[in-house]
Design a protein around this nucleic acid. Structure first.
Lengths: 148, 148
DNA sequence: TTGCGTGCAAAGGTTTTGCATGGCA
DNA sequence: TGCCATGCAAAACCTTTGCACGCAA
């Protein structure tokens, strides 16, 4: 259960500070790299991936898998919320990642483990679908096509 | 709305037949390639991806995105079930992809669109977590560590 | 005959790894 | 001092694309 200590290096501190300051925002490895490059304190891609992986193992950062070929997203986890009532929806049209707070979904977690023996990792799961805007846009488009 | 007809080629027919015969089982592009290679009727990777993409667009096949770096999975969709009450759970320990039929989860779909305006694409979403076996294994391991 | 489908090879993008160097404890 | 972390470059991996050829309609 114990995680080996590991050193407190400059890159590690910078990364954690940045992720914390992002306040729940998700970033790709590439975005993170660009940020530090712009700051004039570049960090190598390998280091970013290696440190992010450590943070994920330690439970400090959550990794979101969006699609193959697409970069994974990383977000800092507030110790207090611990991601149980925090859901993520990904719009397939506009690509937005939407945060959702919902009691009903929390109940699903209980249901899944009680009735199906599956302990759902809410934080890692992404719901795919259409956001409100894009859903409406599609409906409008469909109507216009009918009119033609 | 109309999909351009497209030709009925040998590769296309073979692919569809195989996916249908797999009876809901999911396969990666690489697995599919190996299957036809073993049969002595190899199909090029590019063709496999291009045809699978067409089937996905046509709604005949569902694509599952598991993780970056990991291959996507593809499965044939029975027209009748149309994937509304069919959920997929991925065990983070053993990697198994578990199929789940559950009424309660269907209700969530209604809730999401009514209260959050989000039209959930059930078929594409994968629930990450721990399956029953692995959850128990972890508990046992945790107890043993305590005993030491 | 027309144009889509196929296969190969090459390119694309993200993530991982090997290795020498540099920094933490 | 002894490891661990870093950075670079190269590799690994899955997927997509360009192009010439072949096959469906």
């Amino acid at each position: 259960m114990e995680t080996k200590a590991g050193y407190r290096t400059k890159a590690r501190e910078q990364l954690l500070t940045y992720m914390k300051s992002s306040h729940g925002e998700h970033h790709t490895a590439a975005e993170i790299r660009e940020h530090f490059e712009a700051e004039g304190a570049p960090i190598g891609m390998a280091t970013i991936y290696r440190q992010l992986e450590r943070f994920v193992d330690e439970g400090t950062i959550q990794k979101y898998t969006l699609g193959p070929g697409e970069s994974a997203c990383y977000a800092y986890i507030e110790k207090t919320e611990q991601c149980v009532s925090h859901f993520h929806c990904r719009c397939e049209d506009c690509g937005r990642l939407i945060h959702l707070d919902c009691e009903e979904l929390r109940e699903i977690r209980t249901h899944l483990v009680r009735h199906h023996g599956f302990e759902w990792n809410v934080g890692k799961t992404v719901f795919y679908g259409l956001c409100d805007q894009c859903r409406k846009s599609r409906m409008i488009r469909a109507m216009e096509e009918k009119t033609e």
